[in-house]
Nucleic acid binder design. Structure first.
Length: 329
DNA sequence: TAGTAGGAGAATA
DNA sequence: TATTCTCCTACTA
C-alpha cells in the first residue's frame, strides 16, 4: 500500500482525509517542521502537532506524514473512529512496550506500519469518494492525464474555490491534463507563486488515486470501490448528461464534510435545507455550468422555477435561504 | 442591504 | 422543447 501511494510522483505523494475531532489527551503543542508547513500552506490552520505517527493535527483536519511520503485527513465519523482505534491501539501497545522493555524496535515498527496501512486504506477510500464527487460535479474524468485544457481550467477553478486559494488567473491556460501532469512542483510555483505548491499537491492526490485505480483490479483490491461505488462511478463518469440545479444541490448536500459550510440539511427527512453561503454555492454552480457570471440572484431565480414544477418549495415557515425538496431525498 | 417573488425574453443542449 | 440564464420590478425583513 505504501509503495502504491508513493508511486505517483518522482518527489513525493500526498493523500488526505478530514478529521473533525481527535481523542483528548493526545494533543501536543504544534511545531511542524518547516517543510510540512510549506506543503500545507493554504489548508486549514494548524493548531497542534502529534508526534506519534508523525501526525499533524489541525483545527478540523488531521494530517499524517510518514517518511516524507504521505499526507492524510478525514472527517467521516465512522472512518474517524476507526482511525482513532487504530492509533489508540498503537499508542497503548507502544506504551506497554516501553514499560516492559520486551519488544524489539523492529516489532514496534511493524505494528505501526500495520496501523498506518489500516488508516491509509480508509484514507484512500475517502479520497476516492471525494474525487468521484468532484468529477461528477465538474463533469470530468478522474484521471488528470485525460483532461483537456478546458477540464484543467474547471479543475483549477474548482480547487481554487474549494480551498479558498488565491486566483490562479491565466497561469495554466491552454495546458492539457497530460501537460499539467508532467510539470514539476517548481514549475507550478513559477507559474503561480502564491499557491503553486498547493495546486501541485492536490493534483498529485488525483494522480495517485488514478494510478492506484489503474493498477488494482476490482477483484484484487481491498480498497477500491465497492459494487455500489462502481455503479456510482459509472453513473458520473460516463453519463455526460447535463446536471439539473436540484441534482447539483442534492450532491452538495450529500457531501457535508466538503460543502457543509455552504449548504446543509436542516431536516433531511423532510428535505429541508439551508444555503449558508449563497455566493459560494452560486459560484460552484457557475463553475459546474461554465457560467462565470452566475450569482445567487440568478441561482435563486432558477430555484423558484422549481416551485411551479413541484420539485422545490419554500418550507411552511418561510425562512431566508431555506428551501425544501418536495420529494424528500 | 440582501433575500424573495415572479414576469418576460434569450440562450442552450 | 425543456431547462436555465438573464434582466427586470416590486416587495419584505
Amino acid at each position: 500500500m505504501m509503495k502504491m501511494m508513493m508511486m505517483s510522483s518522482p518527489s513525493r505523494s500526498y493523500t488526505y482525509i478530514n478529521v473533525s475531532t481527535f481523542p483528548p489527551g493526545h494533543d501536543m503543542p504544534f511545531s511542524p517542521p518547516e517543510e510540512h508547513a510549506k506543503t500545507l500552506q493554504g489548508f486549514p490552520s494548524m493548531l497542534q502537532y502529534v508526534s506519534h505517527f508523525d501526525t499533524l493535527l489541525c483545527e478540523d483536519t488531521m494530517w499524517i506524514k510518514r517518511k516524507n511520503d504521505v499526507f492524510m485527513d478525514t472527517n467521516r465519523e465512522d472512518e474517524v473512529l476507526k482511525c482513532r482505534e487504530a492509533e489508540q491501539d498503537c499508542l497503548i501497545d507502544s506504551t506497554a512496550e516501553q514499560r516492559a522493555l520486551s519488544l524489539s524496535l523492529s516489532g514496534q515498527t511493524d505494528m505501526e506500519d500495520r496501523c498506518l496501512e489500516q488508516v491509509q486504506s480508509l484514507v484512500l477510500k475517502e479520497v476516492q469518494k471525494d474525487i468521484m464527487t468532484a468529477c461528477k460535479l465538474l463533469n470530468i474524468t478522474s484521471d488528470p492525464v485525460e483532461w483537456s485544457s478546458g477540464h484543467v481550467q474547471k479543475w483549477l477553478l474548482w480547487t481554487e474555490h474549494l480551498y479558498r486559494l488565491p486566483p490562479v488567473g491565466t497561469a495554466f491556460q491552454h495546458l492539457s491534463g497530460s501537460e499539467l501532469c508532467v510539470m514539476s512542483e517548481d514549475e507550478f510555483r513559477q507559474r503561480c507563486s502564491p499557491c503553486g505548491d498547493v495546486l501541485f499537491a492536490h493534483l498529485d492526490i488525483w494522480k495517485t488515486v488514478a494510478l492506484v485505480k489503474n493498477r488494482c483490479s476490482p477483484q484484487t483490491s481491498s480498497f477500491i470501490e465497492t459494487p455500489d461505488d462502481v455503479s456510482a462511478e459509472a453513473d458520473w463518469s460516463c453519463s455526460g448528461q447535463p446536471i439539473h440545479l436540484w441534482q447539483f444541490l442534492q450532491e452538495l448536500l450529500l457531501k457535508p464534510h466538503n460543502y457543509g459550510g455552504s449548504i446543509r440539511w436542516l431536516n433531511k427527512e423532510k428535505g429541508v435545507f439551508k444555503i449558508e453561503d449563497s455566493a459560494h454555492v452560486a459560484k460552484l454552480w457557475g463553475i459546474r455550468k461554465k457560467r462565470p457570471a452566475m450569482n445567487y440572484d440568478k441561482l435563486s431565480r432558477s430555484i423558484r422555477q422549481y416551485y411551479k414544477k413541484g420539485i422545490i418549495r419554500k418550507p411552511d415557515v418561510s425562512q431566508r435561504l431555506v428551501y425544501q425538496f418536495v420529494q424528500p431525498v
